[in-house]
């Protein structure tokens, strides 16, 4: 059975790490989490981002955050990616499977997945 004392162990482990704060903010992934997003499946999309970003060792570079309604409810789940000096990327009708490709190709490979962009998605 897990006990809270494991948190003390996590604290010890982290002590030596320089950057504990997640995401210095080079890249910001924002998931819409209002009613429209949640009912369309935003929760697993958000959590897949959190997991895949950690699995790809990108937690220092990429910050995964939540926001309310982005205003295009019919395209939910909507994910916006903000990068320094670049235009915002808007991915729509996201799924956990699509998230894996976005992490691999966009966040790691720096090449947006064009099929999932708002301009290329049918309703």
């Amino acid at each position: 059975m897990k006990s809270l004392s494991e948190l003390a162990a996590i604290r010890e482990q982290m002590k030596d790490k320089v950057a504990i704060r997640t995401g210095s903010g080079d890249i910001r992934v924002v998931v819409g989490m209002a009613t429209c997003g949640i009912s369309a499946g935003a929760r697993p999309v958000l959590n897949t981002f959190v997991e895949e970003v950690a699995a790809a060792n990108l937690t220092e570079k990429v910050m995964v955050t939540q926001t309310g309604c982005i205003g295009i409810c019919q395209y939910e789940p909507v994910v916006e990616i903000f990068e320094d000096g670049k235009e915002k990327t808007t991915y729509v009708k996201m799924t956990p499977e699509k998230v894996k490709r976005v992490v691999e190709e966009h966040l790691k490979g720096q090449k947006p997945v064009s099929e999932y962009l708002i301009g290329n998605t049918k309703l």
Binding site: L4, S5, L7, A8, I10, R11, Q13, M14, R21, T22
Partner: peptide, 13 residues
């Protein structure tokens, strides 16, 4: 238990 330095949104936490 975690202290001030480690935020709860840390992946391990």
């Amino acid at each position: 238990i975690l202290g001030e330095d480690i935020p709860l949104d840390n992946y391990e936490v």
